[in-house]
Amino acid sequence: MVRAQTWQAKLGYGSLFVILGIISLLCLAPIWYTIAVSLSEKSAAAANAVTLLPVGFNWSSYEKLLEDQKFFTAFGVSLQRVALGGLLNFLMTVLMAYPLSREANKFRSRNVYMWILVFTMLFSAGLIPWYMVIQKLHLLDTMWALVLPGAVPVFNVILLMNFFRGIPKDLEEAAAMDGAGHLYMLFKIFIPISLPALATVTLFSIVGHWNSFFDGLILMNHSNNYPLQTYIQQLVVQINDMSRMNPDEIKQIMQISSKTLNAAKIVISMIPILIVYPFLQRFFIHGIVLGSVKE
């Protein structure tokens, strides 16, 4: 690579570092700020005196958080949802991607299934009928309402199907020669080969489960059943919508709601994402690129 060595080029390259550095900082700043607020003194945070460093550094908001029963209940609901929902998503993805990756001349109904799948992905009946079906099935206020309706991640099925199709045919034929059935083929050959791709789609579905709040809000009537994001939504966002309240109500809520405590809750709810993030990053570029490989 030929690189220009004029002073203009050097200056240009130097400013590239500065620009990229500033953009990165802008991405981190709001998160950093929230951490700083969570570690600040209550009065300083309420007066908006916190900028980039905690004012009056202390852990009291986290200590207070430990006594908050509701927070832990919601955290538990979210953990359950991630475990059960992630497992269901994983099972449905592999169980559906494999048959759909078969060629249509060997598996006649393949295209019919495929059309149904794609149709459900592109067309939805809308919120109200969807809600009414879940209500009619008496799933409201149960864990199933959070994991069953989204149990088939259609887009992930298609991604993995494309990946399965890219697996060399010789491998399959060799196994078929030895008399391997479909289940053996899927679990002993296809899944081990596609572990990175599977890890990607599973991590994405886990992050999706952790982050979703709206289904928790409309499908759970009791706040004890709220997953963490719904709980935080009620606490942090709804309270900010003060236009519906009169001044007395606003004052009252300001006194109860503690900015530092809320910040601490936000920080704790981000931690699981930050933990899986390095793994996500290792896999996702690979996963996205492989999903776009066309036959």
């Binding site: 099972l91 449905m92 169980l95 559906m96 494999y98 048959p99 759909l100 078969r102 598996f107 109904s109 299934y113 149904i116 799948l117 459900t120 067309f123 939805s124 009946a125 809308g126 009928p129 969807w130 009414m132 079906v133 879940i134 099935l137 069953l148 309706p149 989204g150 149990a151 088939v152 259609v154 099925v157 059935g181 479909h182 289940l183 899927l186």
Partner: peptide, 21 residues
């Protein structure tokens, strides 16, 4: 076997995507 593999997923899609339609 292939049909059986698709069955649970299709059932879920039927209930939560087709029924609402």
């Amino acid at each position: 076997t292939l049909h059986l593999m698709l069955l649970p997923g299709m059932a879920i899609l039927f209930v939560f995507a087709i029924l609402p339609m």
